Amino acid sequence: MLFQTDHRQGSHDQRRLYALFEIFYTVIDFAAATLFIIGSFMFLSDDWMTPGTWCFIVGSFFFAAKPALRLVRELKLAALGDAEDLAKRFRS
């Protein structure tokens, strides 16, 4: 099932893929948060406002990458599963 939260019952490949994507997801979270914190401090000075703005812009792209990464992960996990199960899920 797409966006299934319990992947303990999946195959070895499914568990491995899920874990790998969770690592990527966490790295993106940390990168976005770090850029927003740095950008916030830069906004305290007029001289650093432009680089701070760029930190916010890049951090925003990281935040936007999170749902895209989640969708890719779920589609890859679905592709590893049984095609008949996948077809049943889309019919219901």
Rank of each mutant, 00 (worst) to 15 (best):
D46Q: 06
M49V: 11
R89N: 13
D47R: 05
A31G: 07
D46N: 12
I38H: 00
I37A: 15
H7R: 07
M42I: 01
A79R: 15
L2P: 15
G81N: 09
F63D: 00
I23L: 10
D6S: 08
L35W: 00
A33Q: 05
I23R: 10
S40Q: 06
E74C: 04
G10D: 09
I38G: 00
F30Q: 07
A64M: 08
Q9I: 06
L20Y: 10
I57K: 06
E22L: 04
V72Q: 15
T34C: 06
D85A: 09
A65T: 13
D85F: 09
M49E: 14
F90W: 07
L71V: 07
E84M: 08
R15A: 03
T34H: 06
S45N: 06
A31D: 01
L77G: 01
E22Q: 11
A19Y: 06
R16M: 04
M42S: 13
E22D: 04
R89V: 12
R8D: 12
A78S: 13
R8F: 03
L35D: 00
A83R: 15
D85W: 08
I28R: 00
T53E: 10
D85E: 13
L69E: 13
A64L: 15
A87F: 05
L17R: 08
I37W: 11
L80P: 11
C55F: 01
F63H: 01
T26R: 02
K66I: 13
D47Q: 11
W48P: 01
M1A: 14
R73M: 11
S45L: 10
T26V: 09
D13T: 09
Y25L: 05
M49F: 10
A31N: 02
F3W: 12
L71I: 14
K66S: 02
F63L: 14
D85I: 03
L75I: 10
W48L: 14
A68K: 09
Q9N: 14
M49A: 13
M49N: 14
S11E: 12
P51Y: 11
W54I: 15
V58K: 02
G52Q: 09
K66D: 01
P51W: 07
G39L: 01
E74A: 11
S11P: 08
F3H: 08
F36H: 03
L75S: 06
R70K: 12
S92A: 10
L69D: 03
T26I: 06
P67M: 13
A87P: 01
C55L: 04
S11Q: 05
A78R: 15
G10A: 11
V58L: 14
D85Q: 15
E22M: 08
A33C: 02
L86S: 09
T53G: 14
D13K: 12
D13W: 06
